[in-house]
Design a binder for these strands. Sequence first.
DNA 1: GGAGAAGTAAACTCTACCGTACCGTTTACT
DNA 2: AGTAAACGGTACGGTAGAGTTTACTTCTCC
Lengths: 209, 209
Amino acid sequence: MARRGDQLREHILWTAKDVFLEMGYERTSMDVVAARAETSKRSLYAHFESKERLFGDVVGLVRELNLGHLRTPAAYGADPAEAVVRFCGRFLQMQLWDSALRTLRIGIAEAERLPEAAAAYHEAIFETPQRRLADYLVEQYGLDEESGHEIARRLIGRAVYPQLIRSLLGVDAPLAGRPDETTLADDVDLESLRAAVAALLPPAVGHAK
Amino acid sequence: MARRGDQLREHILWTAKDVFLEMGYERTSMDVVAARAETSKRSLYAHFESKERLFGDVVGLVRELNLGHLRTPAAYGADPAEAVVRFCGRFLQMQLWDSALRTLRIGIAEAERLPEAAAAYHEAIFETPQRRLADYLVEQYGLDEESGHEIARRLIGRAVYPQLIRSLLGVDAPLAGRPDETTLADDVDLESLRAAVAALLPPAVGHAK
DNA sequence: GGAGAAGTAAACTCTACCGTACCGTTTACT
DNA sequence: AGTAAACGGTACGGTAGAGTTTACTTCTCC
């Protein structure tokens, strides 16, 4: 109560995000969204013209949210190899985070019905971070564009995808709670990441040796 | 018409598989299943006691089907390196096949509601083939168990997962039709697979050196 | 303080779908 | 041929959910 206008709209949107992530698109009912937002369906439909449009806006919100949790590799340390390791670890952790996992599940489930939203999500969640990593590699290791991208692709492929598939299918449990922007959970195996980085990258070029 | 007993049951099951893969669990209606199978709901419920049970049986069927399409690496040629390449190619192709992709989408979407089915699917679709590959590597290259598994993991990780995620999110189109058990589609990039194999495996040990 | 915009609450329409019941017909088996 | 089980078609009960409508209240701004 006391929420009006854009403030109410925003409140509904965030509530809808929770419900959609919890239930999936089909099982989410507009009555439940209204009830959870402690508002009325009348107001709900005043701000969002349909369930599908509401879902579209939620997808946009979630995309921004998840993207905001990953910085550029440079933010994770001065030593390039270690920065890459921590960046990959954060990337993986971001994906295994409960809420992101649910989002991805729903995105995959609805990929056929909402192809543009799914493609945009893929761009935001996988390609953009990978590009950031590639740029960092080019800059720090003096690689050419192509091999920078190739190595970034392999690092991500090795650090993220196998574990991600396992979690998507529920073989491994997701990470609970809401990780902040820098912490690395114990679940992330940094040692194997270091091994991957050591195997794929020269032992640092910019500064020493 | 003229289908009775187990034959009708089987027919309904296969029809239900098509409908579930096309629509997903929630959007599939029992009326449509009955209509598509050219039978009545009466008969449908005579053979399957509920929608959920029918879906469970469909999951089992699909698991068998998809697994049947992948042989052991030895079936793909006498030269170990090339056999591994073709095995990985087939593995990827199997996953990108339209029907398998839809199955995986639904499995991921329902992973939370049906955890044991999703885990069994992961086992059948990813772990079993990977284990077959690892066994083959151990046998052909004289590797110890652990490095055999590790290399198999990396090969699969590099050959399958990134492309799979793209297709799951609809960024790339799935392969149409129903591939037979040996053909390799043109969509599968064998060259990059050969490069990966060359990088990860010694140039054959068993025979020539 | 009053008009109008914005919000609440609850009933309502309409459609879809799960599961069941009825009834007439076909098939398999003796 | 005759019988019982299995099948097709259709209609129905009950529930649920997307949007809409109506009637009433509260907030905001002049």
